[in-house]
Nucleic acid binder design. Structure first.
Lengths: 184, 184
DNA sequence: AAACAGTAAGTAAGCACTCACTTATTAATT
DNA sequence: AATTAATAAGTGAGTGCTTACTTACTGTTT
């Protein structure tokens, strides 16, 4: 990957996240990246190719996070780490995940983003198991609930990303998943 | 409101929800509504004006739902009705709410959609009170949790809107909010 | 010199919006 | 009631701008 290729990807990511895919002209990407517009098409064939290249990074990044969660031994630790996942994602690569989430509502990319096939399913399986080990009555449904919760949390993080809010919310959520809580 | 005005609004809503605001040309709206393109601009000044007209309907629709929830006496009934809200919205006016949700991720309309000022705040207040009445230790945080849950549920509904799934999920969620559950 | 990385100046299509105009509706005048 | 005047509703062929993409060219490695 050349220097300019990365520069284009970075700039496009930023602009796509900020203004959306359709409302960001390639000319602007070129201008802000300090390259010629032609280079974008030389390197990525077309605008969609540029988007695909950005999306391809998603899989890899998510993979790392899921791996680190799976590696944890304690089932409760896995669940708490999963709760922290959205916050981790946003704090590390805000623009990137913002783009992912906005894509979920676009027909074209639905299902493709944020839950890229393999790793999402692996995480679901691992967390289901964790709930089972903790003695929850309906582990599958608990996972679904947790997924919904984290979707909602992600929404919230976009709108109110203050440190104080995050910390409060996280600890409250974690308090809901404790050894001594009801498992039904 | 003339007949054609409504026709344009309906068609635009459908197309915006399906393909997005930016990727739906006014020419297509006119064509599918069976009116001239000029009429759109005569009635709504510009494309954004058309969008604003659609959004304005949101406030009114949500108002009705919130009112019916507030009218319920039992605090637990209020909470359960709130849980049912997303399902109700989607079953009644799928296209409409789909559009609302997709807008949340667009900078321009953030905060404006789905939680239109007054009624969202009223609902939050009412539900906070309901939690308080039920003896929950941290009613404000419980509301936030519920909001996040319903955001996530809405996401889920877009991706898997099967009757069976909905019923299962709803009853599971409601089971989490019962008289005999932990309130901390 | 051949291949590669990069540019600048295009091109053609699509878009939101305008405008001069027609048709339907209502109000006023005789 | 009929005619006229005035307004409102509706048309559709432009217009100019923006956009994704192309092409012909240039410098730089190997």
């Amino acid at each position: 990957m050349t220097e300019k290729k990365e520069l284009i990807l970075e700039t496009a990511l930023k602009l796509f996240a900020e203004h959306g895919f359709d409302t960001t002209p390639t000319s602007q990407i070129a201008k802000e990246a300090g390259v010629s517009e032609g280079l974008i098409f030389f390197l990525f064939t077309n605008k969609e190719g540029l988007m695909d290249a950005i999306l391809a990074m998603s899989e890899e990044r998510m993979a790392r996070h899921v791996k680190s969660i799976v590696a944890l031994g304690e089932p409760l630790a896995k669940i708490h780490a999963t709760i922290e996942l959205p916050v981790k994602l946003f704090s590390e690569e805000r623009e990137f995940w913002k783009l992912q989430f906005s894509l979920k509502w676009q027909k074209k990319y639905r299902g493709q983003s944020y839950r890229p096939s393999g790793y999402y399913l692996e995480l679901v399986e691992v967390i289901t198991d964790a709930f089972r080990q903790l003695g929850y009555a309906e582990p599958e449904k608990e996972v679904l609930l947790l997924v919904m919760l984290l979707d909602g949390l992600s929404n919230q993080l976009m709108q109110q990303p203050s440190e104080a809010f995050i910390e409060q919310t996280l600890s409250f959520l974690k308090s809901k998943y404790q050894q001594n809580k009801l498992k039904s």
